[in-house]
């Protein structure tokens, strides 16, 4: 039933407030669509959207079969524990190699830590198979990369609609949803442009729109302003925090201006939490 609401929410000429309201309605309807088949328990206000408990990760200690015995492993995370509630914007700070990206990858289910648990909406990600993690990621996590990682041969709209392909959403609704999201991030006039025809800031906004495509509960952003100038970076952060309301947002950065938008900053050094400033 909720799906029909998506079809009625279109039109680029309406006032911004109307547009925001219509996007929220779409979010609600999509949430209904996905929650019917979601494997994870939806988080309520009392449950953390993301919870890391004593997470340790060593690169080079697992995975590949034909690894040479002489290869050294690198400890990226040491006993990291913290949680993020829905509606929180949490910054991860620290120098390069401190483990910021590794935490984001673990939260997104792109890697399984060697020890500890990572819970996403109450589901232990570390206990899932590759396929189950991919499904959980598709339904509940939106990822924003430093270098955008848009598919160069797809239009902005097709890039945004990408996660909806695997979700089995029909083409017309994918297009409609992607167009609405692009309008929401201020790119309503760029829907058919290829990434090569967009500026860095525009590409990052497309990436943010893509991260929102399946209306995820958690957004992870790895140095989202790393490739952008200060003014463009500020615009992108505004978009990210605006659309990130009601979601758990994790932003990794070593840029103070970026971290300033966070409600809370977790500082890391050598893979360990050294400060969790509330």
């Amino acid at each position: 039933m909720g799906d029909e609401k998506v079809d009625r929410n279109n039109g680029s000429s309406r006032r911004p407030l109307d547009r925001v309201e219509s996007v929220r309605m779409i979010h609600r309807s999509l949430r209904n669509t996905f929650s019917s088949t979601a494997g994870a328990t939806d988080g309520d206000d009392s449950t953390a959207a993301v919870r890391l408990a004593d997470v340790t990760h060593e690169y080079g200690s697992s995975g590949r079969r034909f690894r040479s015995s002489g290869e050294r492993s690198v400890t990226a995370l040491r006993g990291v524990s913290f949680e993020v509630r829905a509606g929180d914007v949490v910054g991860l700070s620290g120098p390069s190699g401190s483990g910021k990206s590794t935490i984001l990858h673990a939260v997104a289910g792109l890697l399984v830590p060697t020890d500890g648990t990572v819970e996403l909406l109450g589901t232990d990600v570390t206990a899932l198979s590759d396929r189950e993690r991919a499904r959980l990621r598709r339904r509940h996590v939106g990822i924003v990369f430093q270098r955008f990682h848009l598919l160069p041969s797809l239009s902005a709209r097709a890039n945004v609609a990408l996660p909806l392909v695997q979700a089995g959403i029909p083409r017309s609704r994918r297009r409609e949803r992607a167009t609405t999201l692009l309008e929401q991030v201020g790119l309503g006039d760029r829907v058919t442009h290829l990434p090569g025809e967009l500026s860095g800031g525009e590409c990052q906004r497309v990436a943010i729109a893509r991260a929102l495509a399946t209306d995820p509960d958690v957004i992870v952003a790895d140095e989202p302003t790393g490739e952008l100038d200060t003014a463009t970076g500020a615009d992108v952060l505004e978009v990210l925090t605006d659309v990130g309301r009601d979601r758990a947002v994790l932003v990794a950065s070593h840029d103070a201006a970026t971290l300033a938008v966070a409600d809370r900053v977790v500082s890391l050094r050598d893979g360990a939490v050294v400060d969790d400033e509330r």
Partner: peptide
């Protein structure tokens, strides 16, 4: 990189 992006947005291996 494209394949990696597909994985990141939730495409399982078979897709």
């Amino acid at each position: 990189r494209t394949l990696a992006v597909l994985e990141a947005v939730g495409f399982p291996t078979h897709s």
